[in-house]
Write a protein that binds this DNA or RNA. Structure first.
Lengths: 342, 342
DNA sequence: TTGTATGCGTTATCAC
DNA sequence: GTGATAACGCATACAA
């Protein structure tokens, strides 16, 4: 086992003290080049890997941040994690990914786990808008920054998000501009700030554009994909059939597209579909979904940048960060641009 | 900051010694219920979270395993990570995900990082078949188990994989049975054992079934998606146009499907497509790709189960584990079953 | 049943 | 420049 080897063993081999080994390891000045070489040679020879565990204990920080996601197999979280992993590296931080349901108890459990590991900061990518625990964690724990979603119960917590309401508004405006007057909307669970705000945006824009309103055009109960599928099928076969579907996530849009295809309708000739998020698969030409970009890359980059700043600041003095990015409509081929009014 | 609070503070508050606090924390017998209660009360009151860092240092293990993947945003790795995260929890292990290119240097770097963190074991989901470093890590480092891919240069290392050659054979047999006699094959990079063996399987089955052979039907240069796209397009427009495409990954199959659609051909009426891996999106009805399942779930479950066993065993005595799962053909709608001979 | 003392592998503060 | 030595926060052998 490698792990029996400590800096002390290196010291013996190099005929120096263990503190000198430590100095060499940390690139201190005031070490003669000669002994520096001796130590490096001994390290190689004996096969020594310094222990981050012991180091962390000694310096009281881990250079590690925690990332809480709901389900890493979900492509949104997976892509987020990838970006954060890469970005963290730039700041010389490692990241530990913790999965957690979005409810308060799971959330607190995840925070607890990460606290046990003594992470220096936490990015929360999965929180319900009514989460009340965040507030106290924010007050007396390690720095936490919310990503994509936030809790309205912790107004002073840090967060990075895209302007979801604005995104939905732009989406509806875009569809209205394509002469769609009857638009169906499928919401994700409105326990999340993202979906709450997207729905609000949809409603606002619907009114502004004077679009038809019907309760039956809107699905906002839950995110069960079978239900979305049936909803689409039923709507398509009803007399109330819309000419466009606005899905609050790309994942939902895929299900809607599936149902539309099964109905024998053509996209976008018969029915237009618009998503929200711009996950990777959406840009695949076989899908090619028109969508509102969530700008994961910018969100993630900003989140970690701010978090690192907060960590490095005097813990007491940091002020409240609220970063809101502008949404970005990406026009692809599930909406028929030939009908454009402009 | 939470982190100033140690078991010692709890001890003072509860009027016991720090070792008693430790005993309570670890559920030792031989602690009076009364003092147990006292301690728990104090823990709550003072808001104490034990440090895994210090604990790990003391007991010389971290209850953590490392997972090395190429790119967590790749759905194959993301889904793998999800399963492993869940499974690890059952064995009371945490997991640290490290991204690494598959080349030897990146690989060794990732191993080094995980070793610094003193993980108890490592699952490698991304290794080239010619990797020579694995062998030495296997001999004198923490337990390592390869997942999905393996290195032929380390024949005694542990691994879990699906029978890739057999999978490709079954795929070709299936297509041949649908009267396809001209089948194109797109390989992934054959620096990986998976693709090496799938290609071998394809070749074997091609001969057995007496299928047409032409160098132009096979693409095995690299995994650049643009190239796959052009390859498909060119082939479709050539006089050598095949009636079926066998893609060595579902991701590749998606690109092929895209190109086919762009050519105005219909799937499966004009052209059949078969993938390999069965990633989540493949079962989406809008895609509905016929494919060979990699059985991630079983692979991942087996990998972590074996790894935990190896960790718990006497480190010296563990024998070589090679777990090979049977592939599973999943018939969906990108292959035309109406032409079936049986 | 509980307390004392020691060690885990580092870093950091002193002296020399 | 370098070497003792005391933390860091926990687990544990040994005493009591």
């Amino acid at each position: 086992m490698n792990h029996k080897i400590s800096a002390y063993d290196v010291a013996k081999l190099a005929n120096v003290s263990q503190s000198t080994v430590s100095r060499v390891l940390n690139d201190h000045r005031n070490v003669k080049q000669e002994t520096r070489d001796k130590v490096h040679k001994a390290i190689k020879e004996i096969g020594f890997t310094p222990s981050d565990i012991a180091r962390s204990l000694a310096i009281n920080k881990t250079n590690t941040i925690g990332l809480i996601v709901e389900d890493i197999s979900n492509s949104f979280y997976a892509e987020t994690a990838h970006i954060i992993l890469k970005e963290a590296q730039k700041y010389n931080y490692e990241v530990i990914i913790a999965e957690s349901e979005a409810d308060e108890e799971s959330f607190s459990q995840a925070i607890l786990t990460l606290n046990s590991k003594r992470v220096d900061g936490i990015i929360v990518a999965s929180i319900r808008m009514d989460n009340k625990k965040l507030k106290e964690h924010h007050k007396n724990g390690v720095p936490i920054i919310c990503y994509n979603r936030r809790s309205y119960s912790a107004p002073n917590s840090h967060y990075v998000e895209v302007d979801n309401q604005q995104g939905a508004i732009e989406g509806v405006n875009y569809l209205a501009n394509l002469k769609h007057s009857k638009i169906a909307y499928v919401s994700g669970p409105i326990v999340y700030s993202t979906f709450y705000e997207r729905l609000e945006g949809f409603e606002k824009a619907r009114k502004i554009n004077g679009l038809k309103y019907s309760q039956s055009l809107i699905l906002k109960e839950n995110l069960d994909m079978d239900q979305v599928y049936r909803f689409t099928l039923d709507l398509l076969n009803s007399e109330n059939s819309p000419t466009a579907f606005f899905a609050s996530t790309d994942q939902i849009a895929l299900v809607i597209m599936d149902a539309i295809a099964k109905c024998g309708r053509n996209i976008p000739d018969d029915i237009s579909v618009m998503g929200f998020d711009d996950i990777t698969i959406s840009s695949n030409n076989y899908i090619n979904l028109t969508t509102i970009s969530q700008r994961k890359e910018e969100m993630a980059t900003a989140a970690i940048k701010e978090l690192v700043k907060i960590i490095k600041e005097d813990q007491k003095s940091y002020y409240h960060r609220a970063i809101v990015l502008k949404p970005l409509l990406i026009e692809r081929s599930t909406t028929d641009i030939s009908k454009s009014l402009t």
